[in-house]
């Protein structure tokens, strides 16, 4: 499934770029994220808890940067595997940043998500909707953090 969206964020392009690669920020923005760390090879590793009613999954996630043109374009691939073997997912992301003005940045985002295993077998209908919602929350949190950042300055 393809998730596409676009949002205007407070802050200059460079700052948004840094936030997007900042493990602490990512941890705060990804819904259910418990930890994020950067490995020596540049990969991001983390765990994300997803709960949908009685279904609980904890994904070990690895994010690999495939292509990067700081601070405007980032292509990454995320792979997650549930610790309880209920399923796994692969997500290919393409992200672009564009300056609207020195204080505002437009973020455009396309990702192709593929969930497999029991978790997908059983609740495709729900997981599609849930993934969309998680993505929405991610962008909302990011937007919030950036707003907050500006107030501090």
């Amino acid at each position: 499934m393809i998730i596409e969206s676009s949002i205007t964020l407070d802050g200059p392009v460079k700052e948004v770029w840094e936030k997007l690669l900042d493990p602490a920020c990512l941890k705060n923005c990804i819904p259910g994220c418990e930890s994020v760390s950067v490995q020596s090879n540049g990969e991001f590793k983390g765990t994300v808890k997803v709960k949908i009613g009685p279904i609980k999954a904890r994904f070990d996630v690895v994010l690999t940067i495939v292509e990067m043109q700081p601070p405007v374009r980032l292509v990454s691939k995320m792979q997650g595997r549930d610790r309880f073997h209920t399923g796994r997912f692969t997500q290919e992301n393409q992200l672009a940043l564009e300056e609207i003005n020195p204080d505002r940045t437009r973020l455009t985002y396309t990702s192709n998500l593929s969930i497999s295993g029991k978790i997908a077998t059983f609740g495709e209908r729900i997981f599609r909707a849930k993934a969309k919602e998680m993505e929405k929350n991610f962008l909302a949190s990011l937007s919030d953090i950036l707003k907050h950042e500006e107030r501090k300055q």
Binding site: M1, S114, S116, A120, T121, F122, E124, R125
Partner: peptide, 13 residues
């Protein structure tokens, strides 16, 4: 199919 993945491999969907 979503690419190569069957999205409805159960008799609900």
């Amino acid at each position: 199919f979503d690419g190569g993945r069957v999205t409805n491999p159960n008799l609900i969907d």
